[in-house]
Amino acid sequence: MTGAFDDLLAANEKYAKNFSISSLTGRAARTLAVVTCMDSRIDPLGLLGLKAGDAKILRNAGARVTDDVLRTLVLAVYLLNVDRVLVMPHTDCRMAKSTDEDVHRLLLDDFGMDTRSLEFHTVPDQDAALRRDLVRIRTYPYLPERLNVGGAVYDVHSGKLMPVEV
């Protein structure tokens, strides 16, 4: 692994010299899992006042509660000390500005790739999608009823969280 990753390998060399968190266990010290978008403007630990080891961070395009997120939450709850989940999409999200059909058409037109077998889980109505995802977690049969589930939209322009009630 060289060339395109040289900058990352060099940065890791510096990081490893002062590595100080080897005593962390992998359990969520603050009993929190955060489902958020892969958008690089989001620093989930920083914006929530957390540090390494405090929370499980699950990221995907649009901060959607997919089957894989549910699978991961089951593991986080039962094996990794999670008893609360924050679903946190954000403003100015590309997934909230398109439909799956738009994305399929764009990828076909611009790259010649037929992606119709994929679901991109776009969110033309972000509030409705967030509420649906919160209900999906709360009613998932493999997650306990006692699990605390909340939602908030992160504003990428102000850094503020806007809580959403179901």
Rank of each mutant, 00 (worst) to 15 (best):
L24H: 12
R64P: 05
A152C: 08
L32I: 09
D133N: 10
R84G: 00
V103L: 14
P124G: 04
R59I: 13
L70W: 08
K14M: 11
L47I: 15
V149A: 04
V77I: 03
L161T: 00
P89A: 09
D127A: 09
L47C: 15
R41I: 04
V135W: 01
T25Q: 02
D155K: 01
E165A: 12
M162C: 05
Y15C: 08
H90C: 10
A152I: 03
A33H: 08
R132H: 04
R136A: 13
M88K: 12
V103K: 06
D125N: 03
S98C: 13
A152R: 08
A129T: 12
K56R: 07
R132D: 08
V103I: 15
Y154M: 12
A96T: 09
E101D: 14
V87N: 11
H90F: 07
P89R: 01
G53H: 08
A55I: 04
L80K: 11
I57N: 04
P144T: 06
V87G: 07
L9H: 10
A63M: 02
D92S: 02
A55V: 03
R116F: 08
N81A: 11
R41G: 13
K160M: 14
V34E: 05
R59K: 12
G49L: 13
L58I: 10
G3S: 03
A61C: 11
P163G: 09
R59C: 10
G3V: 00
D155F: 05
K56Y: 12
F19L: 08
T115K: 05
E119G: 08
S23C: 14
F111S: 02
T115H: 04
L80Q: 11
N18L: 14
D155I: 01
G159Q: 08
S22G: 15
A52C: 11
V153E: 14
D102F: 01
M1T: 07
M1V: 04
M113I: 15
L147Y: 12
S40R: 11
